[in-house]
Design a binder for these strands. Structure first.
Lengths: 194, 194
DNA sequence: TTATGCATGTAAAGGGTTACATGATTTT
DNA sequence: AAAATCATGTAACCCTTTACATGCATAA
């Protein structure tokens, strides 16, 4: 059910087409939420049916049109209600920890290779998160900038600070993963090499 | 697909019934993986059909029997293959970060209440994780103890160290969440109270 | 004898992934 | 003229959740 709130959140910045949203979801927004096209378009239709969004037909090229989605008052009220509802704790289901607990079943070389892949992945994540964080701080992030234009300075300050706060959480998480991976290499050295 | 490997992992410790597994999944094992009864029993049947497990009928009470599942050689080979296969990075989809990025849409009082709930949840998680970690270190953890009985000291050392390593990752994660939550309270104080 | 625990599921619905499908528009 | 981008989906499958269903065994 969170997909629909991720969509409303995005659309509070500016009206977008399904395609725009899809692109956002494969770029910086994907740090906070991800969904493929095939999930986005049907959900937008359901949300319009439920009155959370309205679509406006906008000309595209010579003959075509595209649908730009706007958040309705109902949609915004729904979003606020969700924002204030208690957060259901996520169940642990990360294969990385499951695998780590049973590393003794795998060849140490294969384990090292996996740790290297994980390290590369999280280093890249961290780099992107820090890059996006910087664009939030200097207010150059496109979606954020669009939203800030509609707000006064006090409101803009809040919007920016909370987004930076969310990114700080993601960055801390990435750094924790990297530290754990480094510990993994050290453990392998201790258990197998010496 | 990881559920089946979580099940094999558990069953390498000792043969179990679906009920035993279900109980493990709602106790300490849930830190690493979680699944409800309704997912476990059908999956065990599919795994037996696929030759990864065999079930042995064991008497239970006067008339009844229960099915104890054992990992087959095929199952173990499959598990090892999975252990050495590359880890697919998990897509980010945690509502906590999504919400945090839009805290300006919610009433500060409601936000504080959510942070309190999150803090309580993670404090409890941390307490449980540290408790379980201790039972791994002193080898009193029941499932681990059962497995260690079948291993020599060198193998036992590896099994224990990797499990502790996995828990260290989970503990670091919980601490990172708690630090982030504390930062959230500080941010609210700064933005709304002074 | 009543409550708790042990044992094993089915059914329906929701959410997510992967693959496929199609056509217009803009850029090179 | 070809390639990249914009635009909008459908279909099938898989995994997970929630709710329901049933009955025996053992301990208080």
């Amino acid at each position: 059910m969170s997909l629909r709130y991720a969509l409303i959140a995005l659309l509070t910045g500016r009206p977008m087409t399904g395609y725009d949203i899809s692109k956002s979801f494969s770029r910086s927004v994907s740090h906070v939420w991800h969904a493929p096209d095939s999930q986005i378009y049907p959900e937008l239709n359901r949300m319009e049916r439920d009155g959370l969004l309205i679509s406006v037909e906008v000309p595209w090229g010579k003959k075509g049109t595209k649908k730009e989605y706007h958040v309705t008052d109902t949609g915004l009220a729904d979003f606020r209600a969700w924002m204030e509802s208690p957060l259901v704790p996520q169940r642990q289901r990360d294969p990385a920890y499951l695998k780590a607990a049973y590393f003794d079943f795998a060849d140490p070389k294969a384990v090292r290779e996996q740790l290297r892949q994980q390290r590369t992945y999280w280093e890249e994540q961290l780099r992107m998160l820090e890059g996006t964080r910087a664009t939030l701080v200097d207010r150059s992030h496109p979606t954020l900038a669009a939203r800030l234009a509609k707000l006064d300075e006090r409101e803009a300050e809040l919007a920016v600070r909370f987004k930076v706060y969310a990114y700080d959480g993601l960055i801390a998480h990435a750094r924790t993963e990297l530290a754990w991976i480094a510990d993994g290499f050290a453990l392998l050295d201790e258990l197998y090499d010496s």
